[in-house]
Simulated assay, not measured.
Amino acid sequence: MPARLLTCTAGATSAMALALTLLATPVAHADTSAYPDRPVQMIIPYPPGGPTDLTARVVAAEMGSVLGQPVVPDNRAGASGMIGADAVAKASPNGYTFLANASIHVINPSVYDKMTFDALEDFVPITQLAQVPLVLVVPESSPIHSVEDLVKLAQSRPGGLNFGSAGNASAQHLSGESFKRAAGIDMQHIPYKGSAPALQDLAGGQIDLMFDSMPSATPLINSGKLRAIAVTTANRAQARPELPTIAESGYPGFNMATWYGYWAPKGTPPAIVNKLAAAAQEALKNPKVIDSYLKMGAEPVGSTPEEFAVYARDEAQKWGQIVKESGARRD
């Protein structure tokens, strides 16, 4: 697979410069030294109980203690996270409203022709909360026990294997497309409306394999209904260190993950952005948060706003290239 699909570091220097410029741009605001003096609203653009909601809430609860004011979750689901994101993009940039979103935030611009906001330009990155490995899973009865087994079987049956996903242009779908290109194999994509129905069909043998997020797949792996083969991140997953990476299974450089982060509306004063970032970073060091994340299969990050700005732009380019080459579109 072309290296440009796996690592996208080109332009990191210019992205860093842009990130620093955005964070340093003076904006006319009232004195921020007393911030926050009232509760802070965290908009989560998905329903309660999902991975974005869970990863955001556990940190927000601890951030309240650091900030001295509660961080109040507000779920506004719909349109692949764009309804909630739009509300934050249009919110007053005073630090009292911010967004908790997943990597889909930077994927959406590549798969939707029209959006009501710019996913990068209309937001100021605060911090990346976590990285979540995708795990390659097959039914317990499958003859596939390794990445090598999968590739050999796919080569013997061109187009005969199928992989499920949470939907067209989802991270699961794009990870499967990326692996197809890396391995030089052909598989059929079967989109579902969410991970849950896809995993149920996988466990029942209706589909052959799936690249799914660790939190979603873990219960069926633990119950013995699914077999975990490998993880998609550059390094082994902390939650399942016994699983090899796809990179070490013969495909160096393969690195795909979902991730979660916080964003503020464009124009939010740097002092407030930094205060929110520091509070999130402190919360991510809390043993309760670390334990909750590891149980979900998530790995804490806690980057600076500048680091997250560069990472988000690089990810947007990487996923955008995969979308372009796969032709993936939203339903």
Rank of each mutant, 00 (worst) to 15 (best):
G64L: 12
Q128I: 06
Q131L: 12
A87W: 09
H105P: 05
G64S: 13
A56F: 01
D86C: 05
V137N: 07
P93S: 12
N101Q: 14
F123H: 04
Y96C: 08
A56L: 03
S80V: 08
G64P: 12
L136G: 08
A85L: 07
G68L: 03
L136V: 10
Y46A: 13
A102Q: 11
V138S: 02
H105L: 11
G95I: 08
G49M: 12
V111E: 06
A100E: 10
D118V: 02
V132F: 01
D53H: 14
D74C: 13
S92G: 00
R76I: 15
V88S: 11
V66A: 12
I83D: 14
T116K: 11
N94H: 12
S103W: 02
S103P: 01
E140Y: 04
S142M: 11
F98I: 10
A85R: 03
P45V: 10
V138C: 07
I126S: 10
A130M: 04
V132P: 02
V137G: 01
Q69H: 13
T116P: 06
E140G: 00
F123W: 03
V132H: 00
P125Q: 08
V58T: 15
D118W: 00
A61G: 03
M63F: 09
P70W: 03
P48W: 00
A100I: 08
A60H: 10
S142D: 09
K90I: 00
P109D: 02
P51D: 14
G95P: 06
Q131V: 15
T55D: 11
A102W: 01
L129N: 11
L129G: 06
I144R: 07
I104T: 14
N101P: 00
A85D: 03
G81S: 11
I144G: 05
G84D: 10
A77W: 00
M63S: 06
A87K: 07
A119E: 12
S103Q: 13
N94K: 09
T127I: 05
S103H: 08
S92M: 13
Q128A: 06
A91P: 09
D122R: 00
F98N: 07
V124H: 09
G95K: 09
L99M: 02
S65H: 14
F98D: 04
S65E: 05
M115K: 01
F98C: 10
I144E: 05
Y46K: 04
V71M: 09
T127P: 10
T55F: 01
S65M: 07
F117I: 06
V71F: 03
V88D: 13
E140C: 06
E62W: 00
S110D: 05
P139T: 07
G49C: 11
A77L: 02
T52A: 13
I126Q: 06
Y96A: 07
Q131P: 00
I83Q: 03
P45F: 06
P73W: 08
G81K: 04
D122C: 04
P93R: 04
Q128W: 01
A60T: 10
A56Y: 02
P51W: 00
H105Y: 01
G81M: 11
D113A: 15
P73G: 14
L54N: 13
G49L: 13
Y46W: 01
V135H: 02
T97F: 04
S103A: 11
A130K: 01
P143V: 08
V58C: 06
N94T: 15
F98G: 10
V135P: 07
A87Q: 15
